Simulated scan of single mutants.
Amino acid sequence: MAIPARLVPLLGQFDFARRRLTDRMAGPVRDSGNGTDVEVGPMTDAEYLWEPGPGCWSVRRRVEGPGPRATVLTGTESGDWGRDATPAPHPAPPPFTTIAWRLSHLSELLALRADHTNGSHTLTRDDYTISGDVATAVAAFDTAAGAWRNALLSADDKALDTVGYSTYPHGSDPEDPFLETVWWVNQELLHHGAEIALLRDLYRLRHAGT
């Protein structure tokens, strides 16, 4: 099936942001922004779980329970790890979140949206496995991003205009044309990718003693 013309630039943007985030996390090089490769080491488990300040939300072992101001750990209860959360209304000001929290959130929304677009339309946060180490987390991101990309490739022009083509229950997807959902997912990837990149820089500076 030919890719609808309206989807082409959004798909290109998604592919670019996905590759840039993956390279930023795993190395061995990343694009500096001007086409120059910059060396970057792979993220460590300590960095993945680093809490830059007090009261951070992160992913935690279930036996330890939720972190500060969190009341639950999301994710499948059969897993060893969960992500800090609380039912609405959320804490104000919002807690600062670790790389682990942000990457888990991003991967989960990609995986669930893919399922609610061209999959079973049944997966919930309780079905998602939270990763406690960086290697598993990066692999889970790659799998989720690939699933979402396949969901995009399944959409024709009619689907792009269909309200509720994605039935993802944790957003406005059921009320939005699918094209708006595609745009929204791109901005999620772009802004969380930028946050993760900044946290990597801060972690490097902290341990460089500068």
Rank of each mutant, 00 (worst) to 15 (best):
H121N: 10
G65I: 14
R69C: 15
L21Y: 01
M1I: 07
R61D: 14
D142I: 03
T97H: 07
V29M: 11
A2Y: 10
G119Q: 10
P93G: 03
L11E: 08
P93C: 05
D201N: 11
A155H: 10
R18A: 02
R69V: 15
H116A: 04
L123G: 06
F96I: 06
P52D: 09
G12F: 11
V182S: 09
A145T: 05
A197N: 06
R20L: 09
D45A: 08
A140E: 05
P42R: 05
L112V: 09
F141A: 02
H90Q: 14
P95F: 05
R102L: 07
L190R: 10
T143K: 09
F178D: 11
A70N: 13
G193N: 05
G119F: 03
A147L: 07
R19I: 14
D156K: 14
K158L: 15
F96L: 07
D80T: 12
T76A: 12
D201C: 02
T71F: 14
W184Q: 04
A2P: 12
D142F: 01
Y168R: 06
H207T: 11
A70T: 11
L106G: 00
L73C: 13
E108R: 06
V134L: 02
D156S: 14
R206W: 03
T124L: 10
G33K: 07
S107R: 06
H90D: 13
P174E: 05
F178K: 02
S78P: 09
E108P: 00
L7Y: 13
T210L: 10
A155Y: 08
H90C: 06
S154C: 10
